[in-house]
Design a protein around this nucleic acid. Structure first.
Length: 652
DNA sequence: CTACCAAAGCTG
DNA sequence: CAGCTT
DNA sequence: GTAG
């Protein structure tokens, strides 16, 4: 799915004067229409969207509103499947003859009531609707029910103006109907610029028996998965994990993920403006200025507060030296593990996540800078001016802080957390191996909203690590207590000494080194004074821990260090300074302690007892002796720290 | 107003 | 090889 | 969103 769609005016034939666009075939009165992406190449899907938009078809992506489904659908069975997979229960309605006939031009077009009014209105306000993802659910929530309430004996969704108009989507007053139509129909209509009967292009017509309205509770995921996802590291295995789900789903899902892969190149840093147009006006998106909202109020307040204190800064603490010197690289300053402004920072991080999910990379960067800067500020903030003089922070940061200080929350964060679409995106984004892009794809092009949907429909299309990430979704999300991390580290250490000798060292890095009491994964750094002892140690370690039953899966294995250090030392002074961090061997693995307190008793009672211990994400890093210090730093600092260190090194 | 941007593994 | 993820 |  592309985030931005060209204006419909672009698609007009060159010879057509702008005004006459109203003379092109107007299908604005057909029911809300949804494109079925299955079997459509990205270009094709775009093409269809364009056409539909040009003919002013009320597009929707919301299954609960869609009545017409258009796509490359070969058979009735397929059509039913598409509907069923969208949680739509339907019963087929056999075609009456008149559906194929044309209307007898009874009343003059002008007298015709637009069905429901609201349906047409929903797009009428905007002749230039360019939304790729038309109307979000909240915008059109009630419109169609309004149309339903209108009880004209027979209320076909008539097409106005054009002479004998085929009755396209006829339905009895009280039934909710859906139609599945082949794209050919649209193409033919579009070609001759006239409405033609659906005829053979109507693949399926049905009455809605039940629509899913509330999201059902999630089943126990683990019980659904088949037992085997390959444990082997990806490099050594060519095919995917076994597929537990039936092949009827398989063939569909198979065809669906090929969507975005081969689409036209996007601009390097971000698409279009900041983020997708889909989120224009949302407070958690960029440049959302609604008059009278909290943000602008606090903006004024900020003005006031800062100017009030003009000239005297007696009650704000003296800036730390790095603030004075306007040092902009986080690596040049001391950043404590937990600072006095963490609460505020957590909120900023949420905004940053929101920006990630809406594909606003610039926003992500900007907030990362702000977060890093404030995290390094050693005092509890008391005045907006303090923020203003921190390098990397400006009006926006100060405004947010004032809002937070005054209200105890941030509107942008609340909106983000309450936004239903965002909730779905976050759900998917939390799967290890699924990034923002894929999360959006799951939701916006396939309309999956729960993990169950992925299990049922997407499973075969997920890559190996995503399958693992999904399988252990809950486990990976639960924080690892410090004691457990230490225990894991001690075992890794033990294996390291066994494989080499007792001089092997083990250091906790990452979140735990930074003093957190629990964190998402365990980062363990292994080293050894003998340089030759560290080479290939990672492979041996992983194998050993696998044998011992601790490592259940290897997500990735990176041998960058071993490879590099075998050759020349990366000591090209100035320019090569970028290397260093990543040139260490590392293994990202799934860890499960094979033992638990009542194990023998449990197994005696029931030999099939499952290991109750949670699966943990563990990163094992092997560093050659001379770079342990650097490695500790590298893995303990935040992302911005690392990035800044690279930039800093480049400049010096 | 424009530039900002880590490096490397995995998948298709 | 491009795109995505960590 | 911020810096230049």
């Amino acid at each position: 799915m592309d985030e931005d769609i060209p204006s419909s005016s672009q698609t007009l034939p060159p010879e057509t004067p702008p005004k006459s666009r109203h003379h092109t075939l107007d299908l604005s009165n057909i029911p809300p229409t949804l494109i079925l992406p299955a079997h459509l190449k990205p270009e094709e899907q775009r093409e269809i969207e364009k056409k539909l938009t040009r003919h002013r078809v009320p597009l929707t992506t919301d299954v609960s509103q869609a009545r017409v489904f258009i796509g490359k659908v070969g058979t009735k069975r397929r059509a039913e499947f598409e509907l069923r997979s969208r949680k739509l229960k339907v019963e087929e309605v056999v075609q009456a003859k008149r559906d194929f006939s044309t209307n007898a031009l009874g009343e003059p077009p002008t007298k015709r009531t637009k069905i429901g009014g609201t349906v047409a209105d929903s797009i009428a306000h905007d002749g230039e609707t360019t939304d790729d993802e038309p109307a979000s659910s909240s915008e059109t929530e009630d419109e169609f029910s309004g149309a339903k309430a209108l009880t004209r004996p027979k209320s076909p969704f008539e097409v106005e103006e054009t002479a004998p108009v085929p009755v396209l989507f006829e339905h009895a007053p009280h039934d909710e109907m859906v139609w599945v139509v082949r794209t050919d129909w649209l193409n033919e209509c579009s070609d001759i610029d006239r409405v033609i009967p659906l005829g053979k292009h109507l693949v399926f017509k049905g009455r809605v028996v039940e629509r899913q309205t509330v999201t059902k509770p999630r089943k126990d995921i683990k019980s659904i998965f088949s037992s085997s996802i390959s444990k082997i590291t990806p490099a050594s295995q060519t095919n995917l994990a076994t597929r537990p789900i039936g092949r009827d789903i398989l063939d569909r899902a198979q065809s669906e993920l090929s969507n975005e892969a081969s689409k036209p190149k996007r601009k390097p840093y971000h698409t279009g403006g900041h983020g997708s147009r889909r989120f224009e006006g949302k407070t958690f998106a960029s440049s959302s200025q609604q008059a009278g909202n909290v943000a602008s109020q606090t903006a004024r307040l900020l003005q006031q507060m800062t100017s009030d204190y003009e000239g005297e800064d007696s009650d704000i603490p003296p800036p730390p030296p790095w603030v004075k010197k306007r040092i902009k690289y986080s690596c040049q300053r001391f950043t404590p593990a937990s600072g006095p402004n963490d609460e505020f920072i957590e909120l900023l991080k949420k905004i940053r996540t929101a920006r990630t999910l809406i594909d606003d990379q610039i926003g992500v960067r900007a907030y990362s800078t702000i977060i890093a800067a404030i995290a390094a500020y050693p005092y509890k903030l008391t005045h907006p001016r303090e923020i203003l003089r921190i390098p990397g922070c400006e009006d926006k940061a100060a405004t947010l802080w004032v809002e937070w200080k005054n209200t105890g929350k941030l509107q942008a964060v609340s909106d983000f957390e309450n936004d239903p679409a965002m909730q779905v995106l976050r759900l998917f984004y939390n799967i290890w191996g699924v990034g923002a892009k894929t999360a959006r794809q799951f939701y916006y092009t396939h309309h999956w909203t729960e993990l169950d949907d992925l299990i049922e429909h997407a499973w075969p299309t997920l890559d190996r690590v995503q399958q693992i990430g999904l399988k252990y979704y809950d486990d990976f999300l639960s924080p690892i207590p410090r004691t457990e991390v230490e225990h894991i580290a001690s075992i890794v250490h033990q294996h390291a000494t066994r494989l080499r000798d007792p001089r092997a060292t083990c250091t906790l890095v990452g979140g735990h080194r930074r003093g957190k009491s629990a964190s998402g994964d365990a980062d363990i750094l292994i080293s050894h004074p003998d340089h030759s002892a560290t080479a290939h140690l990672i492979t041996a370690l992983v194998a050993s821990l696998e044998d011992a039953g601790y490592i259940t899966h290897t997500l990735t294995l990176s041998l960058a260090g071993t490879q590099r250090s075998q050759s020349v030392l990366p000591f090209r002074s100035t320019k090569a300074s970028g290397g260093g961090f990543d040139s260490l061997d590392k293994a990202l693995v799934v860890w499960q302690d094979p033992d638990w307190p009542t194990r023998s008793a449990d197994l005696a009672a029931n030999p099939a007892t499952r290991n109750p211990r949670l699966h943990r994400r563990v990163d094992i890093i092997v560093a050659p002796w001379r770079s342990v210090g650097c490695a500790v730093l590298g893995w303990s600092g935040g992302t911005t720290f690392q990035r800044d260190l690279r930039r800093y090194a480049k400049v010096q």
